[in-house]
């Protein structure tokens, strides 16, 4: 279980500042949710955390070690990234995709060892996709692709994992299964999410982004208030607790200023 610490991150592209002075701390197998509307900077922040883009200012540390002092390969041995909507034209099988997770551990000319194969089998098993391991990537549904990528990430045996809206394309059952799985793993997770109720239920800590700034951070109870959601998302909501579990519940009412309840579709 690793610790990810980001301090004072900012990033701009072509003169547009997309992230301003972001602080984030994820540790000890926590699930940290990144929330915010489209374009608020969730994906960009995940890329900076993964070292895929260089921040203009600020530092990212893994267990106290500056990201810049870690080479790509040793970083990939502890950090896995699940990107959003990735694709390929190669006709690779599910198992071959999961095998890619062993890349940072494998020499240039080494075959996969029995140990590697066991790790791959376990990752396929945990993501419940063993029976499809010989299927071609191109024949998979969106949910199956997402689970394949998660299996690939688990095959890296990471201490930290970054996930960019992994519940997209998943039906409700698979959304819950995926997040339940993350809670059982001893891996520190930073996860971009759209669904406020999923965030309320599964995240230990939430970072709310708006226009590239952190506007609130803390436990779901602290962050998910009707006022904050109204100001960030522009939606009037009712926040209460689900009676049987006591989990925070967000009910969407209407876009702010319209004032009439709308049916959720």
């Amino acid at each position: 279980m690793g610790r990810i610490t980001a301090t004072g991150l900012s990033w701009s592209v072509k003169g547009h500042r997309l992230l301003h002075d972001i602080h984030l701390d994820a540790r000890d197998g926590q699930i940290v949710g990144l929330l915010g509307p489209n374009g608020s900077g969730k994906t960009t922040l995940l890329r900076l955390l993964a070292g895929l883009r260089r921040p203009d200012t600020g530092t990212v540390r893994y267990d106290g070690t500056n990201l810049r002092d870690l080479n790509r390969r040793s970083l990939a041995r502890r950090l896995a990234v699940v990107e959003q909507d990735i694709s390929t034209h190669d006709h690779v099988s599910v198992r071959q995709v999961v095998e890619l997770g062993r890349t940072p551990f494998r020499g240039r000319f080494d075959a996969l060892t029995t140990h590697d194969q066991q790790i791959i089998d376990a990752a396929l098993e945990r993501t419940n996709i063993t029976d499809k391991q010989h299927r071609s990537w191109h024949t998979l549904s969106g949910g199956e692709r997402q689970r394949t990528q998660l299996a690939r990430a688990l095959a890296q045996q990471p201490r930290e994992i970054l996930l960019d809206e992994p519940t997209n394309h998943l039906d409700i059952r698979h959304q819950l299964e995926l997040l339940e799985l993350l809670t059982t793993l001893e891996i520190t997770c930073v996860i971009a999410l759209h669904d406020l109720n999923l965030a309320a239920r599964y995240c230990d800590h939430i970072v709310m982004l708006d226009h590239g700034r952190v506007v609130a951070a803390g436990t779901p109870d602290i962050v998910l208030t009707a006022e904050l959601i109204a100001s960030v998302y522009g939606v009037d909501v009712l926040v209460d607790r689900e009676p049987t579990t006591g989990v925070l519940r967000v009910t969407y009412l209407a876009p702010t200023g319209i004032g009439q309840p709308v049916n959720q579709t």
Binding site: R47, S74, V81, I86, T88, V92, T103, P104, R108
Partner: peptide, 21 residues
């Protein structure tokens, strides 16, 4: 042949390959 692992890792794009080390 030395770059075979990189070529495999390119399957899902450059960011994906970078994240695999």
């Amino acid at each position: 042949q030395f770059f075979a692992p990189a070529l495999d890792a390119f399957t899902f794009g450059w960011d994906s390959a970078a994240a695999l080390g």
